[in-house]
């Protein structure tokens, strides 16, 4: 056993560095993410829909190999039900802040909160 005090100090320094880095990441993420405005849904990297966080709706999302039931209400979005094997997307719970996301790996599904856009922006008016 060659371990001495000096080597112990180096270990502590590195662990503290890693801890600080982690906390800094969390702090940055927290600082730079306000309340979200829209929910973007992607399957396998392709955008399949974009919805306002403030319009109540329940969506049946077709992922690769299964479906997830997405609920949007009062500025929050969450997966209510899913037929994926792990059910992690349900456990993720409610997301509301910009940059937060729910990921269902088995279905290659990403539900992501993005910034506030005026929900009424349109490309063209149907009359």
């Amino acid at each position: 056993m060659m371990k001495n005090k000096k080597s112990l100090r180096r270990d502590i320094v590195l662990i503290l560095c890693l801890l600080t880095a982690g906390l800094l990441i969390c702090l940055t993420v927290w600082l730079f993410s306000g309340k979200g405005g829209t929910v973007v849904v992607r399957v396998g990297g392709t955008v399949v829909g974009e919805y306002s966080l403030y319009e109540t709706r329940t969506l049946t999302l077709q992922g690769t190999g299964g479906t997830n039931l997405l609920r949007i209400q009062n500025g929050q979005a969450w997966i209510e039900d899913a037929d994926c094997p792990d059910g992690l997307c349900i456990r993720t719970g409610k997301i509301s802040r910009q940059g937060q996301s729910i990921i269902c790996l088995p279905h290659q599904l990403v539900v992501e909160v993005q910034g506030v856009t005026s929900g009424n922006e349109i490309d063209i008016n149907v009359k």
Binding site: E50, I122, D123, I124, N125, V126
Partner: peptide, 30 residues
């Protein structure tokens, strides 16, 4: 995207890859 007197028809997606957002006129606020 074309509008023929309010009849809208779109081809493909927007150039940024997102879907066209077509706002349907509200009869109460035409």
């Amino acid at each position: 995207v074309i509008s023929l007197g309010g009849n809208v028809q779109c081809l493909g997606r927007k150039t940024d890859g997102s879907l066209w957002r077509c706002g349907i006129t509200d009869p109460d606020h035409p």
